[in-house]
């Protein structure tokens, strides 16, 4: 395995270390490390969408137009009333079916409709096959919708926390309503929203462990595959059931990610809050 290394180095490392180096860098393990990209993508894209939906929801909730306010409130409360897993599974299925339904109205002919024996799709041509990239985007969108509901509440509260004097001053300068909103209100809101948003980010990180439910070969699925009893004809039994070790690694990994994000958000909050009087931090 490590024949390319000079002899003195191989002697120095010893057989045990060489075995572990070889084991942890074999093809399956490399795929496992690479599958981290799905988790990272879902976390980053999902949280960007969550903030977007949160801004949208908070604007709706703050609007002076009653139906819009109602929609914002309903969005923020319904999504929180059901488990995130339910929505996480429901949304991709529902979206796929809606697309197939629209496709069916275009491509299906009476003959193909009659030929289809299964309950769904209406005809074979209207079948939309999903693979990992599509599922990943849909997973991120559902994360965005679910946690956008929480971000809605955070941002709604933060918008109220911006001192009224700031907005009055902006209005006194002759800014229009949208200028006040975009240049003053939303910009100053972030400081007050950051603690809540950091919480939402932690939730999204933890929710990325659910990706394997959508047939994405993410770190959780690979941990399961790698940990299962491993038998090779040339070597014999490499290891028996090691799944708990792999899950322990993931357990520690997620704790470390939480720890790092917590530190990161603390730095960010201190940076964003500079020059702003904050009662809670004194």
């Amino acid at each position: 395995m490590f024949d390319f290394l000079p002899q003195w180095m191989r002697d120095g490392l010893g057989d045990d270390v060489l075995f572990w180096l070889g084991y942890l860098t074999n093809g399956k393990h490399l795929t496992w490390y690479a599958s981290l990209q799905f988790t990272v993508f879902a976390a980053v894209f999902g949280s960007l969408l969550a903030v977007t939906f949160g801004l949208l929801g908070a604007t709706l909730k703050n609007s002076t137009f009653p139906p819009a306010r109602l929609i914002g409130t309903i969005y923020a409360s319904i999504v929180r009333g059901v488990p995130d897993v339910l929505f996480f599974i429901f949304f991709p299925l529902a979206f796929e079916q809606s697309v197939e339904w629209v496709m069916a109205s275009q491509v299906c002919t009476p003959e193909t409709l009659a030929a289809q024996s299964a309950a769904w799709p209406p005809c074979k041509e209207a079948n939309w096959l999903l693979s990992t990239p599509e599922y990943l985007v849909m997973a991120s969108v559902s994360l965005g919708i679910i946690y956008g509901a929480f971000a809605t509440n955070v941002i709604h509260g933060a918008l109220r926390a911006v001192p009224k004097g700031q907005l009055e001053a902006a209005r006194a300068y002759g800014m229009s309503a949208s200028q006040v909103l975009w240049r003053i209100h939303i910009r100053q809101m972030w400081v007050y929203a950051l603690p809540g948003l950091s919480n939402v980010w932690m939730l999204i990180i933890k929710a990325t462990s659910l990706l394997s439910l959508l047939q994405i070969a993410d770190i959780v699925l690979w941990a399961d595959r790698l940990g299962a009893p491993n038998f090779l004809k040339s070597v014999g039994l490499v290891h028996d059931d090691w799944r708990w070790r792999y899950y322990l690694v993931l357990f520690v990994f997620y704790i470390l990610v939480t720890l790092v994000s917590e530190k990161g958000f603390n730095v960010l909050m201190r940076w964003a809050g500079r020059g702003i009087l904050d009662e809670s931090r004194r």
């Binding site: 933890k206 659910l210 959780v220 941990a223 899950y247 993931l250 997620y254």
Partner: peptide
């Protein structure tokens, strides 16, 4: 700080 999903897998495979 860790997902419940992972905790389930971890404890179940440990028990196994």
């Amino acid at each position: 700080g860790s997902p419940l999903f992972i905790q389930f897998f971890m404890f179940y495979s440990l028990a196994l």
